[in-house]
Design a binder for these strands. Structure first.
Length: 289
DNA sequence: AACGCGTGGTG
DNA sequence: TCACCAAGCGT
């Protein structure tokens, strides 16, 4: 009953051909892709990633651009703070690391918008270091295969990293493949809804299967708050307005995108506070240099 | 630790 | 249709 060898063999035979798995893909490309993949599906990332790397092929190239250009190029990937953080990363890498993406996990963690997942993903996939990489897919795979639970407990970085570390093969190459394999299994076989257990390469070792696929019984919180009418929706609408034009947008024009003044003001204040927008004499705009 | 933060595809 | 979901992070 093994997990790592079978899963890794399956991955070597079945891995999707994704841009960040191409030979010669740069560490900068890996960092950009990981930022874009934070809560955004692969299919939506791929075209934006290609555009981004053609325009800004290095951290220094992005660092030289105004942050507003990054926010605009982020387009509809969602959570535009990531664009701002990625730009800030580029500046930090240019100024503190000689324009080279650092490979040390602690140095990566010190970069804005880089957390436990992204730091290890870059260290492992771009540089071949040996660390456990745990994302939402891996948490689900381990919950099922190891713990026999239909869905994972609430995330705990410390516990989750320890659980993956316990399964990690010894050699650099095997560890990297296993990390990628666990993510891939969660993404295309051991999915959140309707997992394809019949096609699973580790079904014979799966604790969840062995126990008859028990369903989770506890109460569940809503995955997300309602989007319609939310501050998130209003922020998104206002930012779309700022992205669409090259000149400051007068406050009077923003009344057209959301009528409720209280909520509109709150959204604008939030955008200003996050640095996603700035106030000028002529109105609101994306941040410049 | 729980919550806020976008956007669009899908069963 | 409409909840649910998608390679998280910062606070």
């Amino acid at each position: 009953m093994s997990i790592a060898p079978d899963l890794s063999d399956w991955f070597r035979a079945n891995a999707r051909d994704l841009p960040w798995r191409r030979p010669g893909f740069t560490a900068w490309g890996t960092l950009v892709s990981e930022f874009m993949l934070q809560q955004t599906p692969v299919a939506r990332v791929i075209p934006r990633l290609a555009e981004w790397l053609e325009r800004w092929p290095s951290p220094s190239a992005l660092a030289a651009a105004p942050p507003g250009d990054a926010v605009r190029a982020w387009a509809s990937l969602g959570y535009p703070r990531r664009a701002l953080n990625l730009h800030a990363c580029a500046v930090a890498i240019a100024e503190l690391h000689g324009g080279v993406v650092p490979e040390d996990v602690d140095q990566l963690l010190a970069l804005p918008g880089v957390g436990p997942y992204t730091a290890r993903a870059v260290a492992v996939f771009a540089y071949g270091h040996r660390h456990p990489v745990v994302d939402t897919n891996v948490r689900r795979v381990l919950a099922r295969a190891v713990d026999g639970l239909g869905e994972p407990a609430p995330p705990s970085t410390r516990r989750d990293l320890a659980a993956m570390d316990a399964l990690l093969p010894v050699t650099l190459t095997d560890a990297r493949v296993f990390n990628a394999a666990a993510m891939e299994l969660g993404a295309i076989v051991c999915t959140a809804r309707a997992p394809k257990c019949d096609e699973c390469p580790i079904r014979d070792a799966c604790a969840w299967r062995a126990e008859g696929y028990p369903v989770y019984l506890g109460a569940r919180k809503p995955v997300q708050k309602r989007f319609e009418g939310s501050d998130r929706q209003v922020r998104g609408l206002i930012l779309a307005e700022l992205r669409a034009v090259d000149v400051p947008v007068p406050a009077s024009e923003l009344t057209a995108v959301w009528a409720d003044g209280t909520q509109r003001s709150r959204a604008i204040a939030g955008l200003l506070s996050d640095g996603l927008a700035v106030r000028t004499d002529a109105g609101y705009a994306l941040p410049g240099h």
